[in-house]
C-alpha cells in the first residue's frame, strides 16, 4: 500500500522530467483501472440483471452459472481435453498455412512465368469463401482431424501466399542492385536480401493468420468433430445449454488472445531494429 501511495505521490515541482513521468504513470494507471472497472461492471450487471429477472438466464446464462460449469468441467477433467484438441489443431494449421503460403510464394517468385500462370487461380481461390469447401474436405479426408486441419490451412495459405509474394516483389531495388554488383546469385538474393526484408510482412501475416486459423478450426469442428471447443459450442447449442456455449466462447477468446500475444512478442523480438514507417 505504501508502494502504491509512493507511485501516486506528485514529485517535486521543479523537476520537469519527473513530473512528466508522473503524469504518464497516472494516465496508465487510470486507463488500467477503467478497463478493469468496465469488465467488473459488465459481469456484475449481467449477474445482477439475471438475479433481478431482467435478463432471461435460459438465453443468456449468467456469470455464476458459467463459473460453476467451468469448475465442474475442470474437476471432471474433460475441459482440458477439449481445449488441448482445438489449440493443437489451430496451432498446426496456423503454422502449416503460414509456412506453406511462404513456400508457394517463394516458388512463384523464383519462376515468374509460373506466377503469371497461377495468378488467376490465386485470385479466385482468394475470393472464394474457404469454409464453403468444408464438404469437399469431409468427403476426401473423412470426418475428423484431417478435415479440420485442411479447413484451417485452406483459410490461411492463400492469403499468406499473396501477401508474401507481393512483399518479395516490393523489396528495395537498390538492395538488389548492390547485392547483384557483389556477384549474388538468385539464391543469395533470396536468402540475404529478399527473405529478411519480408520478415515484417511475414509477422503481419502471422497476426492475421492467428485469427483466421481459429475461424477455420472452429468451423471445421462445427462440421465434423467429436471433441474441441467448436464441438462444445455446437453441442451446447443443440441441447440448448447456452452456459456451455458461452463458456466455450470465453475460452476461445482467451486462447486466441494468448496466441496473438505470442506473435506480438515475436514481432517485438525480431523487429527491434527496423524502422517503423
Amino acid at each position: 500500500m505504501k508502494a502504491f501511495y509512493n507511485l501516486l505521490k506528485p514529485p517535486n515541482h521543479a523537476d520537469l522530467y519527473a513530473r512528466y513521468l508522473w503524469r504518464l504513470r497516472l494516465r496508465e494507471i487510470s486507463i488500467r483501472l477503467a478497463q478493469i472497472s468496465l469488465l467488473l461492471l459488465l459481469i456484475g450487471g449481467w449477474e445482477v440483471g439475471v438475479r433481478l429477472g431482467w435478463i432471461d438466464p435460459f438465453l443468456f446464462s449468467s456469470p455464476s452459472r458459467i463459473a460453476s460449469l467451468f469448475v465442474q468441467m475442470i474437476t471432471e477433467g474433460d475441459l482440458f481435453h477439449h481445449i488441448g484438441q482445438t489449440a493443437l489443431e489451430t496451432l498446426i494449421s496456423f503454422l502449416l498455412g503460414t509456412a506453406g503460403g511462404t513456400i508457394i510464394a517463394t516458388v512463384i517468385w523464383a519462376f515468374p512465368w509460373l506466377a503469371r500462370v497461377l495468378d488467376p487461380y490465386l485470385v479466385i481461390l482468394n475470393s472464394m469463401p474457404k469454409v464453403a469447401l468444408g464438404p469437399l474436405f469431409i468427403v476426401t479426408m473423412g470426418a475428423g482431424f484431417g478435415s479440420i486441419l485442411a479447413m484451417g490451412i485452406a483459410i490461411t495459405i492463400i492469403i499468406t501466399t499473396l501477401v508474401m509474394y507481393s512483399s518479395f516483389q516490393g523489396v528495395n531495388p537498390d538492395h538488389l542492385k548492390l547485392a547483384r554488383a557483389f556477384g549474388a546469385t538468385q539464391w543469395d538474393l533470396f536468402r540475404k536480401i529478399i527473405f529478411p526484408s519480408s520478415i515484417p510482412d511475414l509477422i503481419a501475416a502471422l497476426k492475421v493468420n492467428v485469427g483466421l486459423a481459429w475461424v477455420g478450426v472452429i468451423v471445421g469442428e462445427f462440421l465434423v468433430s467429436k471433441a474441441g471447443l467448436g464441438y462444445l459450442i455446437i453441442y451446447g447449442f443443440q441441447v440448448f445449454n447456452l452456459t456451455l456455449v458461452l463458456l466455450s466462447l470465453f475460452i476461445v477468446a482467451i486462447c486466441a488472445t494468448i496466441m496473438y500475444q505470442a506473435v506480438a512478442y515475436l514481432e517485438k523480438r525480431l523487429l527491434r531494429h527496423r524502422w517503423t514507417e
Partner: peptide, 25 residues
C-alpha cells in the same frame, strides 16, 4: 559499386553490413 542511397540492411548491425559483400563473394 556504390549508390546514392547507402542501401544498408536495417536488420544487420554495422559489422554485419560491412561483411555482406564478403559473405556473398
Amino acid at each position: 559499386y556504390m549508390l546514392q542511397h547507402d542501401g544498408l540492411l536495417e536488420w544487420r548491425t554495422v559489422a554485419e553490413n560491412i561483411a555482406l559483400g564478403l559473405e556473398i563473394r
